[in-house]
């Protein structure tokens, strides 16, 4: 069994003025993830190390962290790939740190709510709606967002201006706008059209690179720049 050094950013709101690093040697096997490394530390070395995790199979979105400077889900990042280390773990960039690796997600949750991420129906049908696989394909990839916030940690525009609605929320906004069952686009365009809507984006594009689920938030945001532009100019032609 090999050993690898894991260094973690530590911050305790009750006692620390600012964060510091602490490292531990962690024995690991080839099938061990970074998350399991952190769990090893918590179970055996220091029970006060704080991080979120839950499903450990890359679907719940809890365990995101910066691993050697890159936003990753720690459950699907393996220590063997980082050997010989050291592995540097920090909380997701651009978010306030609550404690150690746990960041404050409240801002995102508010933004998610602001984009009205639910079907706003025209009229409810009898039985199910008809939606062909082609119609579904128009929004499906955006519905795969697990809200893990890696894209926000990748987005410097969010870091520079936290009023920016941000990649995941805008991708979910687009997901509903592109859904054939939805009739709420006009309401959501109000968010899209603002300075902190899609116009906060300069297409750095890193959000789409780091998404662990193959969602392309940069695409959703930038297609909505076109939507917003159309909305801006064509509003004069609508009654």
């Amino acid at each position: 069994m090999n050993t690898i050094t894991i260094e973690c950013l530590r911050y305790h709101p009750e006692s620390d003025a600012e964060p510091r690093f602490q490292s531990w040697p962690v024995p690991f096997t080839d099938d061990m993830s970074v998350l399991q490394g952190l769990q090893y530390i918590k179970d055996h070395l220091d029970g006060s190390l704080t991080f979120r995790w839950s499903c450990r199979m890359a679907i719940c979105g809890s365990c995101g962290a910066m691993v050697n400077g890159v936003p990753r889900l720690t459950c699907e990042t393996f220590l063997r790939d980082l050997y010989p280390g050291p592995v540097r773990i920090e909380p997701l960039n651009h978010f306030p740190i609550v404690r150690d690796l746990a960041i404050d997600q409240a801002d995102f949750l508010g933004k998610l709510q602001s984009v009205k991420p639910y079907i706003i129906p025209d009229a409810e049908p009898q039985g199910t709606y008809l939606q062909t696989p082609e119609q579904m394909e128009r929004y499906y990839q955006y519905s795969k967002c697990i809200n893990c916030l890696l894209c926000y940690a990748a987005c410097p525009q969010y870091g520079l201006n936290d009023r920016f609605t941000g990649p995941a929320a805008l991708a979910l906004l687009h997901r509903y706008n592109a859904d054939s069952r939805d009739a709420g686009k006009a309401e959501r365009m109000e968010v899209v059209n603002t300075e902190d809507g899609v116009w906060g984006c300069t297409l750095v594009g890193y959000c789409s690179e780091v998404c662990p689920k193959g969602v392309d938030p940069a695409r959703a945001v930038n297609q909505n720049k076109i939507e917003s532009t159309k909305d801006y100019f064509f509003r004069f032609f609508r009654k």
Binding site: Y118, I119, P121, E124, P125, T128, Y129, L130, Q131, T132, P133, Q135, M136, Y139, Y140, S143, Y176, D179, R181, D182
Partner: peptide
Amino acid sequence: LEHWGCPWSRLPNGHV
């Protein structure tokens, strides 16, 4: 759930 937006997999004719 379908009305609320759940993306159930579909048949080519659009039915669930």
